[in-house]
Nucleic acid binder design. Structure first.
Lengths: 231, 231
DNA sequence: TGATCGCATCGTACATCGTACGAGTCAATC
DNA sequence: GATTGACTCGTACGATGTACGATGCGATCA
């Protein structure tokens, strides 16, 4: 059993009422794709992208490193699965039917951004062709909502990508500047040292105390105004 | 001599008219930060992010692997320097004085995007706090131009980040979907297989033949309309 | 002239990584 | 009882980033 590419969820091992004896020498509940992915997310949260090693992951799961490869194919797949698993979206069904399409779109995109900010490593995993079911689901929802809101078919793709791009960029940027206080101090000092070369951004304290959330909301509104004007 | 962080460019070795004899046993022109960075970019262009190894880089430069560490500190620094070096912008001085501020902004941002698309690896390096001089320069230019165009100080940071975010996201997304035909066929097939779950994005062929450039331009225009309305 | 010193280069060595390979263990089936 | 297939894991290999120390060089100073 191998999950290739980014798409996979394998069938869970069936194991009935009877317990395996060896793998869980005393307590470990046996490997499964779900456990692996969940544990990978934990590890990424705790140690960041570089902290995720197949060996460490296996240790945490109480198994041998090579056992993982029955379930996942390779490390790339672990990354892809972890990323997609973090981007699940609950509000699929209900909100769509609202006539408040704009509220629905904003809600989904803000939730998206929030999810990624909860897991800062996710931003650095984005630059890869990972189109798991959750990501596709969000795209589908976005697409359907905009379409229902009256965006013409010929403008639909442009609208979707503009919004998606905006969210991606905002998340990545935000993640970059949300480092430790120490890093922030570093940046300030470096900028001050080069102050005369970059007077405008130094004066506006661009790197230091921008209102990220406000800026995100504002830009999003402008985009929506343009893409699908409030009638 | 060590370039720490992302900011550095060290002074070039001074070497007068006389040649060193050992390092360039016959032909190699001696190590320098510039040569290292330029060669790193070449290597990244040719082999992608994973293709860049200190050993390979050193080989190309005709030197030993450890020699690089006199100039760069660590591999991270090489990445940061390569990224920034690719983002140089020529149009600094002249365009700024134009009254056509909007043209200047659009030009700079499109040039930015173009530069990153010329070097597809740059997108995957973005999610890191790399603020080299060229990136800062672009931010400064953007900032100054918008300010001069009449954007109020209190709105300035939000405007800058919205634009920056948009460009980042667009570039990263575009890079992801510009893979080989083979990958594209893969995606198509995968989507078709799951067709019934994602009918809307399948119908619009979202992943296949979107007009990236057009979408980019359109979204950018909307953003600019909102952020700094044409009077 | 020789001694000293800072810049720069590089060989060796080590820890760590992803993972190929194949042997092992079990439950279910024949 | 033999076979099969799902699953686990120990060992091993090649590659990587880089710490460390040895080495050579030109310039400076005695």
């Amino acid at each position: 059993m191998v999950v290739k590419g980014s798409s996979g969820q394998g069938k869970a091992p069936r194991r009935g009422a009877s317990q395996r004896t060896v793998p869980e020498a005393r307590n470990e509940p046996a490997l499964s794709l779900e456990r692996i992915v969940a544990c990978a997310v934990e590890l990424l949260d705790a140690q960041g992208v570089d902290g995720l090693t197949m060996r460490r992951l296996a240790d945490r799961l109480g198994s041998g490193a090579m056992s993982l490869y029955w379930h996942v194919g390779n490390k790339e797949a672990v990354f892809d699965l972890a990323l997609d698993s973090v981007l699940e979206y609950a509000g699929q069904a209900q909100a769509t039917e609202d006539q408040d399409w704009r509220g629905a779109v904003v809600h989904m995109l803000e939730d998206w951004r929030a999810a990624m900010l909860r897991h800062p490593w996710s931003a650095s995993l984005l630059p890869r062709r990972a189109l798991g079911p959750n990501i596709l689901g969000r795209l589908e929802l976005l697409s359907r909502t905009l379409s229902r809101a009256g965006v013409a078919d010929k403008d639909l793709n442009a609208a979707i990508w503009s919004l998606w791009n905006y969210v991606m960029g905002a998340t990545i940027t935000r993640g970059n500047f949300e480092r430790s206080d120490e890093d922030r101090a570093d940046a300030q000092q470096r900028l001050a040292a080069l102050g005369e070369r970059y007077p405008t951004i130094e004066r506006s304290r661009l790197l230091l105390d921008s209102d990220w959330d406000g800026a995100f909301r504002k830009g999003l509104d402008f985009l929506l105004d343009g893409l699908a004007p409030r009638r």
